Structures are given as C-alpha cells and as structure tokens.
Computed example of a mutant assay.
Amino acid sequence: MTTFKSMPHTARKRVVIKLGGSTLEGLNESFFENFKKLQESGIELIITHGGGPAINRELAVRGIESHALNGIRVTSEAAIDIVQSTLIGKVNPALVHELTTAGIAAIGLNGFDGQLIIADYLDKDVYGFVGEVKTVNTSLLEAIISAGVVPVIACIGSGEHGQALNINGDTVASEIALAIDANSLILVTDVSGIRINEEYQLKATPSFINQWIEEGHIYGGMIPKVQGALECLSAGIPSVQIVGESLVGTTILSEG
C-alpha cells in the first residue's frame, strides 16, 4: 500500500478507533466521556466503521442473499449498491450526528471523498465487489485533523474507474492506522476485551493469545478479532486494544 504524505509525522499521539457490531446502533454516554478525555489529553482521533447489522436488515428487506467467507462479506453486484447506500447514506451520517450532538466536531467521509481510499478487487471471482486498500490520501486526513475535526470514515473504497468496493472494517482501520503512523488501534466491540476464566485481561501478548486459543479460552467471534489485532501488531502498529463501548478493555502489545 502507498500513501500520499503531506507532512512528517509529529510527536502528537494518534489513535484510530474502529466501531463495529451493535455499538453502531447507539453509543452510550461513557463512550463520549472517554472519547473527550482522550481528546483533552492531546490525542488526535480518527474513527472508522462498518455497518453489519444495518446492512443485513436492508439486504433482508430486499431479499438479497449475503454470506461471509473467511470473515469477509461476499458482495454481489446487487449487494454492493445496498452496502454503499446504507454505509454512506444511513450509518455514517447517524454516527456523525451522535458525535456532534455530544459536542465532538466530526465530519463523515468515505473512500470517494478526495480519493481517500483507492482500492482494487480483492478477488472478484471469490468475493465479488470486495476491495483491498491500495492508497490512502493522508493529506486529506492531515488537513481535517489539523482543523480539530474528527474524520469518521465508512469502509467503502473507490475502484480505479469509480466502482464502489466493500472493504472489511478491521482492514480499513488497520490500513488507516498504518498510513497515519498511529500509536494505537482501538477495536470497539460488543465485549469489554479478552476474558479468561471469567476475568477480563488488562494486557495480553501474542504468545499469551496463541496459548489461550490453543487451550480453548478464546473461541468463537473473539478469535478473528485477536487474530486481526496480531496482524496489526506485526504490520507495525505499536498497540491494539479490544474494548467495549466505555473504551476500556484489553491492550495487546508486542513481546518484550
């Protein structure tokens, strides 16, 4: 992946927050309180989001079938229109409205805005209209961040010829984080981190996570989350946090 750089990375801390699952159906008060605390501490924030529940409802209403393969939504030509209109027309503005109502300056974006996310087909024969990130226009993000505004990015990419491509939400979050030299990636989920023997873990390392998976302590939907976190760490993001809506949970750090 290449990026359009406009200025060198500063000493200021940057964090990408990825919102997913039922958290997008309405954020609680503690989310906004802790979000503001991060801002007040001098951290620059970027939000990325998917919209699975809303997309599923729209597809069902129109009788369009959809399924996941390897954690990725296989997206037909009929489905991409629904994904695009739902993310850009409904989920993104609703999220921006929640933030601005809470007193947080925010602006909604998607891959088409200023060529923010240029993508290519991941594998059209297998996944249909699903994209992989090729370039991120960091100049645009730098301008918005420097104005004190939070970018809120829907995971729709623009193909070379203007075709909308659906991109996995965790993938967009990690690619944005890498492009802007983020200090951390926060994955906001339906649970407050990694729970082992009924106890939430404050910290974890790749070796512990692999051990917990092997022993069956991490299972089901948490497995792809922690695997995605490990991929982000190996790609160069210093830390990844898996948290609940209060932005409190498990911090995953590299070994040593």
Rank of each mutant, 00 (worst) to 15 (best):
G103H: 08
Q241P: 00
L140Y: 11
V91Q: 08
E33M: 12
I107Y: 05
L87V: 14
Y219V: 08
V152P: 00
E58S: 06
L59D: 07
A182N: 06
T10Y: 05
G228K: 07
V149P: 01
V15I: 13
T171L: 04
V248Y: 01
K90R: 12
N137D: 01
S41E: 01
Q84N: 13
F112K: 11
N92L: 07
T101P: 00
L99K: 12
K124M: 06
E65P: 04
K37T: 00
G26E: 02
V248E: 11
T251H: 01
T250M: 06
Q201H: 11
F208I: 05
D181M: 05
V133F: 11
N92I: 14
G244M: 12
V91K: 02
D170R: 10
M1G: 12
P93Q: 04
D190E: 04
V152K: 13
N183F: 00
I104L: 04
F31T: 04
T75H: 12
D125S: 15
I117H: 08
E199K: 15
H67D: 05
L233F: 05
N70H: 13
D123L: 08
R12P: 01
S85W: 03
G50F: 14
I194F: 03
M222N: 02
G128F: 03
A182L: 03
G63H: 07
Y121S: 10
N168Q: 05
K203V: 06
N34M: 10
A79G: 08
E58K: 12
I252Q: 03
E215K: 15
N56S: 13
S85N: 12
A78E: 10
E77D: 12
A143Y: 03
D123C: 08
H49V: 09
V149Q: 02
K18C: 10
M7T: 09
N183D: 11
E44D: 06
E231Y: 03
T86E: 06
F129S: 06
D123H: 03
I213T: 14
L185F: 12
N137W: 05
W212R: 14
Q163K: 15
L45D: 00
Q39H: 04
V126H: 08
I196V: 15
T101G: 02
I145Q: 04
T138K: 11
L95T: 14
P93F: 06
P238C: 07
L233C: 10
I209Y: 05
T135Y: 09
A106K: 05
L109G: 09
M222E: 00
I47A: 11
S207V: 15
A119L: 11
A102H: 02
A164P: 15
E29H: 15
S207M: 09
I167S: 03
E214A: 14
I55L: 05
C232L: 02
I176W: 08
H161V: 10
E65A: 11
Q84L: 12
T251I: 06
G50P: 01
A179P: 13
E160S: 08
V172F: 01
K36D: 00
L233V: 10
E58H: 08
I64V: 15
V172C: 02
K134N: 04
H67Q: 09
L24D: 03
D113F: 13
G221W: 10
E132A: 14
R14E: 00
V149M: 03
T10K: 14
M1Y: 02
R195P: 01
